[in-house]
Write a protein that binds this DNA or RNA. Structure first.
Length: 547
RNA sequence: GGCGAGUUGGUGAAGUGGCUUAACACACUGCCCUUUCACGGCAGCAUUCACGGAUUCGAAUUCCGUACUCGUCACCA
């Protein structure tokens, strides 16, 4: 085709595209940023699902931009109309908000480099495609699904590389007349790149996480525009990250094999390329095998699941931080008061293999997280949670605010705080017995945890001597006396020395009281619980128990 | 099948030629502390880094081969 023919082909294909590349470029000027500032983007497809893998991706974009005083923006990659899901973009927004990973620019925040929704950028992509056609670097391809299928099967049979390249690219050299004929018949077509790659030549990806990776050049005449006029991911990615001036593309390592395509596109378009950081996916163990987390198969990894289960978003981020750089954990242990943003995250220290998503570890991190919070904070945060997920308990919390806070405050201050809470859900489970509404339900149910023999005599005596005004020491001395008078050892040590001399030891008495008062085997410090409940309530509960 | 990546304990992993008889953390086990449980403290938990070979005075760390696992080869991203 001659220059003139290519020009008329471009006009034929894109009569409505009047802008030039230069005009578009001028609307996306270089960003003015300080040296070393990173521009990152979170670019999900709104398919109606966000899982921890997506979250990790967004978190990485966020921290690296933030720590370098750069820009973190959000772009919605919705070029696949068939997978479009109603409300999916607001799910993305909400998910990021619940984890406080907020892009300062993009689909919801706006900004100077938009639009940030790919389906709204159709003309931009087509402007570049039109230009490529004029230069003879792209061409329309009218092959049908059946033809493609046939070629593919043949290639598989002959163990050749799969795809449209070389002599398989039959529409590469269609004449203008032939194309016109197709167009007149209204035949569907896509636009393919005219690949200039050589399978025997190699390109090197200088990956920020994995180091240098050598790959063969792209020889495939990749589709850059689908029959509906929208670009494919590969093309949209290159155009957008160029125009929006991304400096580091952080994405899952499943994209590594397509790097040569992206490089090729950049070269053909004359773009200066950004850097890449390909991270290993989060994996899960199943039947002894490890595999990548899947949206469809693993609902327990969905972001909404975490919210519903009451797992604190800060805990999840702390967990993600330890996955991203394992040395984070040690650092955080030494700097418990600092934010994860103070930690110098590095691409080089990221794991290169798949990382197992260990829920056990997440749990532990959350426990520690809660153990460092003030009672008041736990109260307020869980109030929000219960307002949404458990209105009954929300009512109880509101009604008994002071009591709950005093309870949560037990053994919280000091160097060795309790670690009995890992989720907002635990706040209810651990404090239920403090509230009459839940305590006096059904006696069987209240005391279902208790299996050992009950000494009603000692409980009756205890009920008589309990005084809510006693100090901790006075309280303890009273129990010791009670123990001695009733043939219990006043300390565990004495009991252990001569167990046959005693009915039990002081701990057994405490346990009896604990059971009667709370129905539980494990609680925070008993003295404090009794004090919060008060003499009257303590008496009533013991009577309830022994009656 | 082609291409690419990965392979250190129950788990996440540190480690880039001698400081490693393999850090740290989670889990597990035991002991101690303690008014029970928890918390906390101490100790134990891979003589060994997928396997085979090579280089070297010396290798988890370099090289070659094998195996296995994962990813990818769409008008999906």
């Amino acid at each position: 085709m001659t220059d003139i023919e290519r020009n008329s082909l471009a006009e034929l294909l894109f009569p409505n595209i009047t802008a030039t590349r230069e005009e578009i470029e001028s609307k996306y000027p270089e960003r003015t940023l300080t040296e070393g500032a990173k521009v990152t983007r979170f670019a999900p497809s709104p398919t109606g699902f966000m899982h921890v893998g997506n979250l990790e991706s967004a978190f990485l974009d966020y921290i690296f931009a933030k720590q370098s005083n750069g820009v973190f923006y959000l772009r919605l990659e919705d070029t696949d109309q068939e997978r479009y899901v109603e409300g999916a973009s607001s799910l993305v927004k909400e998910s990021l908000e619940t984890f406080s990973i907020i892009p300062t620019e993009g689909a919801f925040a706006g900004g100077a480099y938009g639009p940030y929704i790919q389906s709204e950028r159709k003309e931009i992509y087509q402007t570049y495609i039109k230009d490529l056609i004029k230069q003879g670097l792209a061409y329309p391809c009218f092959m049908t699904k059946e033809e493609l299928q046939e070629i593919r099967e043949g290639q598989e049979l002959r163990k050749e590389a799969i795809g449209i390249y070389g002599h398989y690219a039959v529409d590469r050299d269609l004449s203008l007349e032939e194309i016109k004929a197709h167009l007149e018949k209204n035949d569907d077509y896509v636009i393919r790149i005219r690949s200039n790659g050589d399978l025997n030549k190699q390109v090197v990806l200088h990956d920020l996480i994995k180091g240098d990776i050598t790959l063969p050049e792209n020889i495939i005449d990749e589709v850059i525009m689908k029959k509906d006029g929208l670009p494919t991911y590969h093309f949209a990615h290159v155009i957008d990250d160029h125009l929006m001036h991304t400096t580091v593309v952080i994405r899952g390592d499943e994209w590594i094999p397509s790097y040569p395509k992206h490089l090729q596109f950049c070269q053909m378009l004359g773009f200066k390329m950004w850097k890449y950081a390909h991270y290993a996916p989060l994996t899960k163990k199943e039947n002894g095998n490890t595999r990548k987390l899947s949206k469809r198969k693993d609902p327990e990894f969905s972001v909404s699941y975490y919210k519903e289960a009451g797992i604190p978003s800060e805990g999840v981020k702390l967990f993600l931080s330890t996955i991203i750089n394992t040395n984070f954990e040690e650092w955080y242990l030494q700097n418990p008061d600092k934010s994860y943003l103070d930690f110098p995250f590095s691409f080089k220290k990221m794991p290169t293999g798949g990382t197992l998503f260990d829920t056990e570890k997440l749990n532990n991190i959350c426990r520690t997280y809660f153990s460092r919070l003030k009672a008041q904070t736990i109260y307020e945060d869980s109030l929000k949670y219960y307002e949404e997920y458990d209105p009954d308990f929300f009512q109880v919390m509101t009604k008994n605010k002071d009591r709950l806070i005093s309870f949560l405050d037990i053994e919280r201050s000091g160097k060795r705080p309790r670690k009995d809470i890992a989720t907002y859900n635990d706040v209810k489970l651990e404090s239920l017995y403090m509230f009459d509404e839940y305590f006096y339900k059904d006696k069987e149910d209240t005391y279902k945890e208790i299996s050992r023999n009950v000494d009603t005599d000692i409980l009756t005596k205890y009920m008589a001597i309990y005084d809510e005004n006693d100090t901790n020491d006075e309280w303890y001395t009273k129990i010791q006396n009670l123990a001695i008078e009733n043939n219990y050892a006043p300390s565990t040590k004495e009991y252990k020395a001569n167990p046959e001399n005693y009915k039990g030891h002081i701990g057994d008495i405490c346990e009896q009281v604990r059971h009667a008062i709370t129905g539980k085997k494990e609680t925070p410090n008993l003295y404090n619980i009794l004090k919060i409940l008060g003499k009257e309530e303590v008496t009533r509960r013991i009577q309830f128990f022994i009656s």
